[in-house]
């Protein structure tokens, strides 16, 4: 009977997991979040930028990355606006423009003095992958057919008078879920032109991002939902990532519980087969 715990129906696992995540999201307990060194490095880098600096935001993800990357994007934009940083954004992923719109729409209501075209510009998605990125370094207007994500001529936007290409950015922050992503920015922009690069990535991309942070090619990382929650804490505006950390904590605890049960069942089953 005990050995059956090693073979629990997967539907039971699904239901329990769903219940744990839902309860933690509806009634968060507010577990303490400690800020990691990687997140602090990104925060400090933005903090050190002089007011008025232009930062490139690469929205290299689509809807699947929203739960982990959107809170990070919102917190970073909030931090930037607090420091009077201006943003130009775009990306190689088809939903880049929509993701940027979603992030800025959520933050702009708290900063009524910030205006589109003056404090931020959304170039949106453009095809061509690294070739587009390569063209964006020196001539953003030519690489983007002269219009932003909403069809406005770039020449009419005041911020674009100071931003002729990514080379004019003081820093780049990219939100990535895969390819094209971090390596493309390193080899095309940050290494050849010496523009500091920070990365916000989903959890599954963290192991692949660590070598770049260790080598200094990426100055820091807002890594997974954990990193997003840490950034929300740093800008003093807890949001969906902080709430999500409770859900993630309890979901991980449940999975660990099942792994332990599975191993107890496995050991018992092994003992039984030896006895027979």
């Amino acid at each position: 009977m005990l050995s059956k715990i090693g073979n629990v129906d997967r539907r039971i696992i699904y239901v329990l997991l769903c219940a744990v995540i839902a309860i933690a999201l509806i009634k968060p307990v507010g577990l303490a979040i400690k800020v990691s060194a990687e997140t602090k490095k990104v925060y400090d880098a933005i903090d050190r930028l002089p007011p008025g600096s232009i930062v490139w935001l690469g929205f290299e993800f689509d809807a699947g990355g929203i739960p982990e990357l959107m809170p990070a994007a919102r917190a970073i934009i909030r931090h930037g606006f607090q420091k009077d940083i201006r943003f130009v954004c775009g990306g190689m992923w088809t939903m880049a423009g929509d993701m940027a719109t979603m992030a800025f729409d959520a933050v702009k209501k708290d900063f009524p003095d910030k205006q589109y075209g003056v404090d931020w510009v959304n170039i949106g998605y453009r095809p061509g992958n690294t070739i587009w990125l390569d063209q964006m370094i020196k001539d953003a207007a030519a690489a983007s057919a002269g219009v932003d994500s909403y069809g406005n001529p770039l020449a009419d936007l005041p911020l674009m008078q100071e931003f002729t290409g990514i080379k004019d950015a003081k820093m780049m922050i990219i939100f990535v879920t895969g390819t094209p992503g971090t390596p493309e920015y390193i080899k095309t922009v940050s290494t050849p032109y010496g523009i500091p690069l920070a990365v916000s990535t989903i959890s599954v991309e963290v192991p692949g991002t660590m070598p770049y942070i260790n080598s200094g090619q990426v100055l820091g990382g807002v890594l997974g939902m954990k990193g997003a929650a840490e950034y929300e804490v740093l800008v003093n505006k807890p949001g969906s990532a902080v709430a999500g950390m409770d859900a993630q904590s309890f979901a991980h605890a449940l999975i660990i519980l099942f792994i332990i049960l599975g191993n107890i069942g496995y050991i018992l089953e092994k003992k039984n087969s030896v006895a027979k």
């Binding site: 699904y14 699947g64 739960p67 792994i259």
Partner: peptide, 29 residues
């Protein structure tokens, strides 16, 4: 994008948590 592709994309991605949980339970022995 916002009414068809985005919800489908998010749905496919979010179902991964259940598969990973079930796979972890069975694989980590």
């Amino acid at each position: 994008y916002s009414q068809i592709i985005a919800p489908m994309n998010a749905t496919v991605y979010s179902t991964l948590v259940f598969y990973i949980a079930s796979a972890a339970y069975r694989a980590f022995r």
